[in-house]
């Protein structure tokens, strides 16, 4: 039976394996038919920043095209395509966290929110997992 998972993420991109573990959790939950609501808190609001760009790899001597360097915003966009209908992916970027980081230019999909929305999600969903940062 389809249920809904509220997932709180905190780590910024390119720092911890928790980012990709979080994405694996979202992907698996969606694939298994569950809805996912992501609350991006603190550094995690940077995961969806639109200005992220892939880069070449001078050590390996690869170009941008050859390297196909992943960006977290592209991965999140792919997760949004998975969760565009039923099951559904929703994503809130904590507004105050966005403001203090100047991280307001993000890809299509996430919306701005705060503790009010998180409290509502926790009440309304079957499970909540918090993945904190250290």
């Amino acid at each position: 039976m389809a249920k809904t998972l509220t997932l709180v993420l905190m780590d910024p991109p390119y720092e911890k394996e928790t980012t990709t573990t979080g994405f694996r959790i979202i992907e698996s939950a969606l694939r298994q038919g569950h809805n996912v609501k992501v609350f991006a808190y603190e550094g995690a609001v940077n995961l969806t920043m639109k200005d992220q760009q892939p880069h070449p790899n001078p050590v390996k001597g690869t170009t941008v095209e050859q390297e196909q360097h992943p960006t977290t915003k592209d991965w999140v966009a792919a997760l949004f395509r998975m969760g565009s209908g039923s099951p559904k992916l929703e994503w809130i970027n904590c507004g105050l966290c966005v403001d203090e980081r100047g991280a307001g230019n993000w890809i299509e999909g996430p919306r701005r929110g705060g503790p009010k929305e998180l409290a509502e999600w926790v009440q309304a969903t079957e499970a909540t997992l918090v993945i904190p940062t250290k």
Partner: peptide, 19 residues
């Protein structure tokens, strides 16, 4: 165990998940 198995545990009725 797979990540799918973890999701099955997290989504199980009444099971509390701590990271």
């Amino acid at each position: 165990a797979s990540i799918d198995a973890l999701i099955a545990l997290i989504m199980e009725d009444g099971r509390k998940a701590l990271w």
